[in-house]
Design a protein around this nucleic acid. Structure first.
Lengths: 160, 160
DNA sequence: ACGCATTAATTGGCTGACCAATGATTGGTC
DNA sequence: GACCAATCATTGGTCAGCCAATTAATGCGT
């Protein structure tokens, strides 16, 4: 028999959280699309954020990257090591504090910078295709609110 | 010196794709929050979609699941194996076609069903907190459009 | 000056998810 | 009936990302 399964869509399913579910699906598709666009640059989905941070800032300690991007330190370590191996990034111990690892974008990596910007532009166009200005504005505004709601560190404690 | 890095926020950064970038961050936070809420049930982020599909449908072939959820077959195989090991799922070869694997939710797993629904509800509330009805409606509508834009399989080919 | 808490980074273990290639099984066609 | 293409699932390899525990280095307090 093998029951018929509806092709995943924004149809009410009796579990509630319709928007949340749609968001989850959109999130996956978005990441996937981004990864595809990013492929030609040699970067993987997720690495672009690290690189963008490094392009915009001088030598940075990893802990600073983890804090700024709200990533787990172990994630930063591993990803940076791979980026280093790919020649995108240069890591060196800070002589003044030998605990810290100072990271900076390699000279060659700057060639990717405009390409990454290009990718973001394409992706933006793709996801917003067919939306009028009002919708785009609304989407941006609402998304920001949602981000604040999900903001890291404000689980329960009303104030720090 | 270790340059100061701005705490990731929806601030223009010279890369364009502001909305897309915000979406990417929201996506990560959303998945993370969902995972946390899901933890008590014993499920991991991502598995809930499989389970929901199985709860709503009888014995299903894996290929059907992959198609319906738009997942890679290998992802389905691995995740289902883990779910099987956890006792959430039962897999058996179809006697009529020994290529296919028929999958169904275990009896005990149905206890999780309301909890998962609960989680979706909580998550929905969390992300939409502080949004008025109009914004919620707009968000849902726009997300659906975005999902269509990202819809799988419509990369280039205008029609099949 | 010694010791202990803090901070930085790393390792190990586990998750979903992808892609590409392989192994079964089936079903058509000649 | 033999062969060959299509289908289903699996394996092997890669990635980001998390958490928990560990090691290294610093700095503060007594």
């Amino acid at each position: 028999m093998t029951t018929e399964l509806p092709h995943t869509e924004a149809t009410e399913d009796g579990y509630g959280g319709a928007v949340s579910q749609t968001l989850a699906r959109v999130a996956r598709l978005h990441r996937l699309a981004g990864g595809r666009l990013l492929r030609p640059t040699g970067l993987c989905s997720g690495q672009e954020f690290l690189m963008m941070a490094l392009w915009d800032a001088g030598p940075v300690r990893q802990s600073e990257l983890a804090r700024a991007l709200d990533l787990d330190p172990s994630t930063v370590t591993l990803t940076l090591r791979r980026l280093e191996q790919g020649g995108y990034v240069i890591r060196a111990r800070d002589p003044h504090d030998r605990r810290v690892m100072l990271v900076r974008a390699s000279e060659e990596s700057y060639a990717l910078r405009p390409k990454v910007a290009e990718v973001w532009g394409q992706l933006e166009e793709h996801i917003l295709d067919g939306l009028d200005d009002a919708e785009r504005e609304a989407f941006a505004r609402i998304l920001s609110k949602v981000e604040k709601n999900l903001a890291p560190g404000e689980e329960d404690s009303p104030d720090a």
